[in-house]
């Protein structure tokens, strides 16, 4: 299991232990974490699973995948260098303790 920490726009912190291989988006939905919508189910179609990877972790979550940068243009909140689509971040052992912040709006 890998620990993921979600910090909502209002500061609410939720810690989840999740199996490796699941995406940061799926884990949020499966555990009822507010602030991620994930409308397209991870098809990289909706940009409603936008998150900001905590700078310390940005190196480990890897590069944006092909097409992700483009879809982020459709995100409802500001996009920064730490912005990712959380459906494109699969959990691995190296991400144990990952911290992501959630934007104010997803729609």
């Amino acid at each position: 299991m890998v620990k993921v920490i979600y910090i909502a726009a209002d500061g609410t912190r939720t810690e989840i232990d999740a199996p490796e291989g699941e995406s940061v988006m799926r884990v949020a939905l499966a555990n009822d974490v507010e602030g991620i919508v994930g409308e397209c189910g991870g098809a990289m179609m909706c940009a409603t699973c936008h998150c900001y990877v905590e700078p310390d972790w940005a190196g480990r979550t890897g590069e944006r995948v092909s097409g992700e940068e483009d879809m982020l243009e459709g995100a409802a909140s500001e996009v920064t260098q730490y912005s990712r689509l959380s459906c494109q971040i699969p959990l691995t052992g190296a991400l144990d303790g990952l911290v992501v912040r959630l934007p104010e709006d997803q729609i």
Partner: peptide, 12 residues
């Protein structure tokens, strides 16, 4: 087809 950038800009 496989052009998410154009899609999202068109959508906007």
């Amino acid at each position: 087809l496989n052009k998410p950038g154009i899609h999202i800009r068109a959508r906007k």
